[in-house]
């Protein structure tokens, strides 16, 4: 992976509200990673942060998903300018 994109990686909890990122790595225990992937939050998925710092509210494949701080810390994303991760209503 290019070093520039490695530098750009941030934890999901650090992504500012309104910004979109691409999931590039999941850390944490296996059960958590699997569940996150099964919900469509896996590597390469686009995620838009709606709000939150300690508890994050995100939009993934049109679904609003709430994550606590520990979960959001275990999802590393690469910020992408001006993209929105789909919407349901």
């Amino acid at each position: 992976m290019p070093s520039s994109s490695l530098n750009a990686r941030v934890q999901l909890c650090q992504l500012p509200a309104g910004a979109t990122g691409r999931v590039c790595q999941l850390t944490g225990d296996e059960s958590f990673c699997q569940r996150v992937r099964e919900m469509g939050f896996g590597e390469a998925a686009l995620v838009t942060k709606i709000s939150g710092t300690t508890t994050s509210l995100c939009l993934v494949k049109g679904t609003r998903i709430a994550l606590n701080h520990r979960a959001a810390m275990n999802i590393l994303v690469e910020p992408i300018p001006a993209v929105r991760a789909g919407r349901t209503e």
Binding site: G28, F32, R35, V36, M39, F41, T55, L57, T63, R64, I65, A66, L67, N68, R70, A71, N74, T88, E89
Partner: peptide, 12 residues
């Protein structure tokens, strides 16, 4: 035990 992860869908 460590505080658990939470990942929960918020319905419209």
């Amino acid at each position: 035990g460590a505080p658990p992860h939470m990942i929960m869908e918020l319905p419209p």
